[in-house]
Structures are given as structure tokens and as C-alpha cells.
Design a protein around this nucleic acid. Structure first.
Lengths: 247, 247
DNA sequence: GAAGATTAAATGTCAGACTTTTAAATGTCA
DNA sequence: TGACATTTAAAAGTCTGACATTTAATCTTC
């Protein structure tokens, strides 16, 4: 690992890049301990704060973890599904909120991806997954549930559906699509009637998944997408009209 | 934005969390300038290096960007699709390589997701997308192409297919699934015959997309998945046998 | 008014010291 | 001998204060 002191790039960037490359290429293997900050500073011929800035950057991407105390230090981190999942969700959420992605676009992407999981889920889901879906459906029917809680339960329902496919890579990929939609969904007010409609569709989907009927599950997701889209459209239309009246 | 000096968490972590929350919640808006490092150090009652570490972490996640010089500083960054795309690809690649994900699992996830895009792509693809697919198919047929280049072209083909759906959120989500597979694909040696088979399937898919035939496109992807899986299985089997002989 | 020189503000870097955490080595006692 | 307390040292975390570098705005001069 070497850096180029004549390069215009910041030293700490060069250092974090060098270490990142070593990790990605496999030169540094999982759980291997990096030299201490002081040693790294020596090796790269920079000061310790500069090394630290580089390490912080790597830590932010879960590429390393640090431990204090004797026999502590920076260790190459095994990127767990949970870490990747979390990163994925925050990135997707920010992407959607910062780029004014339309409800339609996000919704389309989400349901397209979920339909991809449905056949696998119908085939492999365990009873646990079905139970979770049922539980969430029941929760969604409880009176007095806030819109936020309703949305959160909706996310949990869809996660169970996706996890039912039994493919962790798929679950990870879907994390962003499913969870990042929540802030957008939270902008919707659910009337008692629209909740009823959604719950009915959820039940149909859960039934299909339980009896291993892939086609019915896909069809159910299609219906749910149509319903969600129509609901959003009517809510936004009402809001625009109201804004016009106020003006 | 406040931090709790009695908390056991590292100060720089608390600071980066506080700023991150401010960005995610919308308290800080895109392109807004943060106070200078010295001012932040004052506000949080910490030293400048501590603030800098926090900022580096945020920079690593593309949440902020920094500029040197007068009227420089840290600015809230609009997370672009390209930034998100890149992050997604590196995370997915690392996740696969560090967790010994089987070829089958990754392959299944990838094709499931691609099949989700196919119908949309068949409906909306522009002539550009079709042209890209044709170009890559042609390239794949060139003699003397290395296995790596063949894989890279394969990725380009599939990206065009996905982009054809005209949904940037979908393209972003698929980035990880498509590109992270490449290192796994690179482990495969492609014989002339297996290349021929793949190219034929690619052509069939491109044809289907061009004439707007969603079902045929999905079927083509199915065939391609089967072919890829069989190919991988035979390659790995041959390798295992060879290793056994050597022993 | 435009080109160039100056200035000031901000990040980037350095050096060295101190604090806190933590595991391991050491010591003590039953 | 073995379990428990104590010491110790290594490492990350933090602070202070300084200097270097970059860059936009301002000032100066023609």
C-alpha cells in the first residue's frame, strides 16, 4: 500500500482509497487487524489525524470496525446483510426524497420488484412468513391505528412476503424498494374504506402465498399496485384542489 | 442540533449522527452550507479534528461535499443517481464476496429482478436501448474476446435491458444485482459453444424487447438463467474433479 | 473597465500531549 | 493450585495550537 505525495488528491482520501482497494482485492482479509493508527501514520508518512480521517471514512461504509483498548485497533469488517440492508435503506430513502421522485415511479419500481419475489415466495415461504403476514393484516384492521403505524405494518407485511422467497440477496436488494417507499406512503391519509380495500388485497395475497399459488400472488400485487396508485392520485388531487381554494 | 456529552458514544459519532438527522429530516436542505469547521467545533463544544472526523464520515456517504478556499465549506449534497448507483454496486459486490454467497443464490436473485423489468422494457424501450443491446451482442461474437471482456459486455447488455424500462429507480435498484454478479461470472471460463448459446439467447431477448413481446422476453430470461446455471455447474464440477486428481 | 495583485476565509495537514478504554500480565490469597 | 483483584501497557479518542494550501472576493493599477 503506497500513496503518491505529489498527487493533488487529499492525503486522507488517498489513504482510504489504498486501504479500500486492499480490502476489495482481498489483500486484507476479513477480521484481519490493520496496523495501529500510529504505525499507519508512519507507513504513509502522514500525521495521525490524517490517518484517522481516512479510517473514519472506511468505517462509515462498514468496511472496517474499530475497537479501543489493548489489542484493539481497526479490523476488516465482514459486511453483514444487516449492515448492507441498512445502508441500502438510507441511500434509497435519500435518493427518493432528494430527487423529487414521483410517487408513480417509486411505486412502479417497488411493485415490479415484489412481483419478481412472489413466485419464489409462494414456493418456499415457511409458516413463519405466513404467520407474520397474518399478524400484520390483523394489526392493520385494528381501529384507532395511526396512518404512520398502518404504513409501518404495511412495510412489515411486504418484508415478510419478500423474505419468504428464502433468498437473502433478494431480500437485501428489495430492502431499499420497500422501505424507502414508506416516507412517500406516509404522505397519504388512509380513510377507513381505503384501509379495508388494502387489507382485503393483503389477505388475498397472503392466501395465494400460503397455498403456493404464484399467479394469484402476482395478480394480487397487481391489484394492490392499482389500488395504491389510485388512492395516491385521489389524495394528491384533493390536496391540490384545497390549495387552490385557499389561494 | 445538540449532542450529549455524558453519553458513552464517541463525540464524533454523535456529531455526524446529529448532522445526518438534520439532513434526512429536511432541517438542512440541499446545497445549504454548513457552518465552518471552527464554528461547528464551537457549537458542539469539541475540537476541530473531532468535527472533521464527523464530516469525513458524512462525506463518505455522499451526504455532504466539501470545498476548500474562501466561501468554501461543507455543503449538503444532492444524492445523485450516479452516486447512489456506485454505492449500491460496491456494497453489493462486497456483500457477495465476503459472505460466500453461492452462485445459485446470486443468479436467482439477479434473474428474478430482471424478469421484473422485462415487461416494462418491452413496452417502453427506445431505439437506443435496442441498439446498445445489438452492439453488445455483436461484440460478444467477436473472436479473441477474453472472458473478462465477454462478461463486461454481458453486464452492458443487461444494463441496457434494465434501463429500457425507463424507470430510474428500477435501474438504480438493479445496479447491484447486475454488476455485483460480474466477479462471480468472471470465475467461469466460456467455451466457444457456451458463448454461442448465450449469444443466441441474448438475440432472442433483444428481439422480444424490440417487438414489445413481454412474455417472450421473460421466457428468454428464463432460458438464459437455466443456461447460465448449467454452465456454472459444469465448470465448477470440472474444477472440483481436477482438484481431486491433483490431490 | 479590465487585468493583475492582495487579502481573508476556509479546508487540509502537522506535531505532540493528554484521556479513556480494555485486554493481558502480574500478583495475592484461600 | 486456582480464583480473584491489581497493575500495566497498548490503542483509540480527544484537545490545542500552529502552519500550508486553496480559492473567491476585494483592491489596485493602468
Amino acid at each position: 500500500m503506497k500513496i503518491d505525495p505529489t498527487s493533488s488528491a487529499d492525503l486522507s482520501v488517498q489513504i482510504s482509497d489504498a486501504i479500500r482497494d486492499a480490502i476489495v482485492s482481498g489483500d486484507l482479509i476479513v477480521d484481519e487487524r490493520l496496523p495501529s493508527e500510529a504505525e499507519l501514520a508512519d507507513q504513509f508518512n502522514v500525521s495521525r489525524p490524517t490517518v484517522r480521517e481516512a479510517l473514519k471514512r472506511l468505517g462509515a461504509q462498514s468496511l472496517i470496525r474499530t475497537q479501543r483498548g489493548a489489542s484493539g485497533g481497526a479490523f476488516v469488517n465482514r459486511l453483514s446483510y444487516t449492515d448492507a440492508y441498512d445502508q441500502q435503506v438510507t441511500t434509497a430513502t435519500l435518493l427518493l426524497s432528494m430527487n423529487a421522485v414521483s410517487f408513480e415511479t417509486a411505486c412502479e419500481a417497488r411493485y415490479a420488484l415484489e412481483r419478481a419475489c412472489a413466485p419464489l415466495s409462494a414456493q418456499r415461504r415457511t409458516s413463519d412468513h405466513v404467520a407474520t403476514m397474518r399478524t400484520e393484516i390483523f394489526r392493520q384492521g385494528q381501529p384507532g391505528l395511526t396512518d404512520e403505524s398502518f404504513c409501518a405494518s404495511d412495510v412489515a407485511f411486504h418484508r415478510a412476503l419478500v423474505d419468504g422467497a428464502g433468498n437473502p440477496v433478494l431480500s437485501y436488494q428489495l430492502a431499499g424498494a420497500v422501505e424507502a417507499m414508506q416516507p412517500l406512503m406516509n404522505m397519504i391519509t388512509f380513510t377507513a374504506r381505503s384501509r379495508e380495500a388494502i387489507i382485503a388485497l393483503h389477505s388475498a395475497i397472503a392466501d395465494a402465498i400460503e397455498r403456493g399459488d404464484a399467479d394469484a400472488a402476482v395478480a394480487g400485487l397487481n391489484d394492490l399496485e392499482t389500488e395504491t396508485l389510485a388512492l395516491a392520485k385521489s389524495v394528491f388531487a384533493a390536496r391540490t384542489k384545497k390549495a387552490g381554494e385557499v389561494k
